[in-house]
Design a protein around this nucleic acid. Structure first.
Lengths: 160, 160
DNA sequence: CCATCATAGTTACATTTGTAACTATGATTC
DNA sequence: GAATCATAGTTACAAATGTAACTATGATGG
């Protein structure tokens, strides 16, 4: 070992400056705020919203594909879909080519709810970033993606 | 109404580019990754870690104060503290000046666990941001704080 | 000081979520 | 073309979390 300058091995964690904690707090506050909007008006929760949003985006999609696009386990999707179907917001249609899977589509009622939520959700996101310049917003999104890519690598164990 | 140029009212939400969703995904992956570290080795969950970290930071603190510093409800703290006490990681000590509250402190065993987790947690956070330059990291943190401040305002209802 | 009100923390109950097993169907291989 | 293996989705059970009620103590105001 040469030169010097110990990089100051900290002996404690300050929660308020600890990134995993801060990310969790922000995500919780944001999810809660947005969830309140569609929760109060339409009585649906986050998993239901994600399923609805994914069907709204892809029009006709299987539960498995929803899982890949929405980061949810199949159990959660199954439950959310059952709940949305009960309320008449989505329909299930067996795939004749593979009877294991079902295509999900929005009913007219579901499309109508979706059409109502979309502007509320977009507005929420716009309000959330209202204090940021377009540049800052783009930067934040870019860094978010890079952090996510890194977090997904799980750091291959060598440093744990 | 004058001029023109509709600001293109989007008719759908692309989940993959929707900030609340992306924040939630990142926070979930990060919490999961970090949680696995102290979960597997010490058998503690996120609420326990937060309580432990807060006591480690403040040395002697009431449950209420932990709540203020760690964004957790009192029920969660009560349960986490009970679990940590059962395992001999923390001690409770009634405040003679106000018998309603209890000061929590780390036992030697708890301090030892804390001392083991701190470098792991700091290292996790360092690995997480390893792809970012110091400038980018600072920028991300700053924007995170501004978003959090904004999200907390709950947008005063006028735009909902 | 005693009646009311507020607060710290716990407990009870309901809701949500995750894990694992299961059911039904499809793919593969010998 | 039966036996094995893989996959989509559901169900059953367990663990975690939230909401509300409760207990004990302290503060306040007449």
């Amino acid at each position: 070992m040469s030169s010097a300058s110990k990089p100051k091995p900290q002996r404690s964690v300050t929660l308020a400056t600890f990134l995993p904690y801060r990310l969790n707090v922000l995500a919780t506050v944001v999810s809660g705020g947005l969830g309140r909007i569609y929760g109060e008006r339409f009585g649906i929760g986050i998993p239901e919203w994600r399923v609805l949003a994914t069907i709204g985006e892809f029009k006709r999609i299987t539960a498995k594909a929803i899982g890949q696009h929405s980061e949810m386990g199949k159990v959660k999707i199954s439950r959310a879909a059952a709940s949305l179907e009960e309320r008449g917001f989505i329909q299930r249609e067996a795939n004749a080519d593979d009877l294991r899977e079902m295509f999900l589509t929005l009913t007219p009622a579901g499309q109508s709810v979706y059409d109502e939520i979309v502007p509320l959700a977009l507005n929420y996101a716009a309000q959330l970033t209202a204090d940021l310049s377009p540049d800052e917003e783009a930067t934040f999104g870019m860094l978010l993606d890079r952090l996510l890519a890194r977090a997904r690598k799980e750091f291959d164990g060598s440093e744990l």
